[in-house]
Design a binder for these strands. Structure first.
Lengths: 333, 333
DNA sequence: CTGTTAGCGCTTTCAA
DNA sequence: TTGAAAGCGCTAACAG
């Protein structure tokens, strides 16, 4: 026979206090006599009592849940953001409940609705693009909302991330300053990945201001990956493209490009310079550390959580936190 | 003025039925007249009603939550498992609630307790090592429990994974068959990572059966990473070690080793063969695809969820699902 | 500092 | 096929 799982009532009875007092002790709320608190704590201990969160949420119409919606888990970038979120949640009673959209706004909308059904304390999602319905739900819910990764638009409540357009510009400026003039681009499908697109736009914009333009470009029709980067660069060069530097849509692609150069005996950066985005560990472990942009993913997640929990109410005006970026001056460009 | 969020009562009133009927429609339970169902569905639609999960969980003492406890998110392996879990949960009403232990059994125990507080339908964790208290909680809870990654021990309810000892043995057999006889090992800290240890044990065991033993070994004192692999191999060779093949604790380490060889001009596999574990994409994108073992992480997550949801009750006898492994016969060993 | 009294929004009997 | 009544285990508001 399973012993009945203990409830507040059991604890209260054993400690000889009212349920309310037990509740207060658990939540550290209101003042409690030293001795009473001890008695309650002892009772909790001997019964092995664990509060029922569902009951708590229902009664207080607020749960210790943080909803997290990510576009993907395949790209190491988002697990790193999630790691940051976890770090921010450490030593708090909050638990993240996560959903993955696969870059599908319809799925996002569905997730917003089903996560909101748990009455989470806050909801974290990505980017500024949402279906109208999703946006309405997010706006109408009174909870705090963070939109991560990007800061180039107006958030619902809080945006935490970096300017991808500026990162693209910085890339162009770096290359121009280094004297590269025939700059190519190797990318992936950006119908889903708007941020890669923004970096591309920034890149072109700054090149144009320097009197240049992309000499060649090729985009892989699918998500980014090392192998896609390798093959797409190979394809670009096979087409007889002339370039002294290639910017990749991100580090995965760039590392793939590096692999192609290794295999094909192309000296990097002497004959071809390579530039990435993200600052992944793998790029820095190459025989020549990849020149790229550090995007502080972990910090984005952690900062967002901290900011969200620091203020329970949505501030009057939407807030933007720029976690910045930095050129990693590697050896490939 | 915020419009009050609609509840079952509102829907019931609008549809002119009892709350109970609405509840039945939502949960697809019991038989409902065509016409009544439609009326209810319409009401739900016009009100934009979303069921309050906390209330549902409380009333039914079961939530649509699947608790997931992972040791880490830094290693791409676990996000891939998580991806599999998500895939298995697609088209179900379940949401994963995740926790990360950082390989700390104490934290795992805490997470077990706080996830159990949500009365999840099932709980997924990793490995067979738990504190006594955690094990007791898992055993006493009547919900289904999956222990992932490993199958070399007796699970509480369900184990899904592969035999790491056998994977280690297979590695040894592969190398011996290829004629390598001076085999070294480069690893990482395995006090936390028991599975790396199991592979090592299998490797040594099979080598010994072939009349061999490890000629040299070096372990990095920290978690696995590309850079650790690179530096640890460099250190091993700097010590004047003699080896014709090196087995790494996993692909991250092996890719790092490959990078060292590239930089140091060591021909792979002619002068030094390299062997990994996991079958990560990056290994297959190297100029020479890494010889390694595919560990089917995605499938482990997905299979576990499917099995867990297929049967609500814990079966009489603990069950083991072997998702297997396969030698990837790359070009580095 | 502590207790009493009402629910939170849903599901679960049990009837009809 | 539907409804009425009774909680699930907790927190909130108000007393005292």
């Amino acid at each position: 026979m399973q012993p009945e799982t203990p409830t507040l009532t059991h604890v209260a009875r054993l400690a000889n206090v009212s349920e309310n007092t037990v509740s207060r002790v658990i939540r550290n709320k209101g003042s409690i006599a030293q001795e009473t608190r001890k008695r309650v704590l002892d009772a909790i201990d001997t019964l092995g009592y664990v509060p029922n969160r569902a009951a708590g949420s229902l009664a207080s119409s607020a749960s210790l849940i943080i909803g997290v919606i990510l576009p993907s888990l395949s790209n190491i970038v988002f697990p790193e953001v999630l790691r940051g979120i976890h770090a921010g949640l450490a030593d708090t009673p909050y638990q993240p409940m996560i959903g993955v959209t696969d870059y599908d706004l319809g799925k996002e909308q569905q997730l917003v609705s089903s996560l909101l059904a748990w009455q989470p304390t806050a909801l974290i999602t990505t980017g500024f693009e949402h279906t109208d319905a999703a946006r309405r739900m997010l706006e109408n819910s009174r909870i705090r909302i963070a939109e991560l990764m990007d800061i180039d638009d107006r958030p619902i409540d809080l945006a935490v991330g970096l300017s991808h357009r500026r990162a693209g510009r910085a890339t162009a400026e770096h290359l121009v300053q280094r004297g590269y003039s025939r700059i190519g681009y190797v990318g992936h499908d950006w119908t889903a990945d708007r941020r890669a697109r923004a970096r591309y736009d920034g890149l072109c914009e700054a090149l144009s201001e320097a009197g240049l333009s992309l000499s060649v470009e090729k985009r892989h029709d699918g998500p980014s990956s090392t192998i896609a980067g390798r093959d797409t660069l190979a394809g670009l060069l096979a087409d007889g493209a002339v370039a002294d530097a290639v910017v990749f849509s991100n580090d995965d692609m760039a590392v793939g490009g590096f692999m192609h150069c290794l295999g094909a005996g192309i000296p990097v950066p002497e004959r071809l310079a390579l530039f990435g985005f993200n600052g992944l560990e793998i790029g820095q472990a190459l025989p020549k550390p990849l020149s790229t942009v550090r995007s502080n993913r972990f910090n984005i997640g952690k900062t967002a959580v901290k900011a969200l929990l620091a203020q329970a109410e949505r501030p009057g005006e939407a807030q933007i936190i720029d976690t910045g970026f930095a050129i990693i001056d590697g050896a490939t460009a």
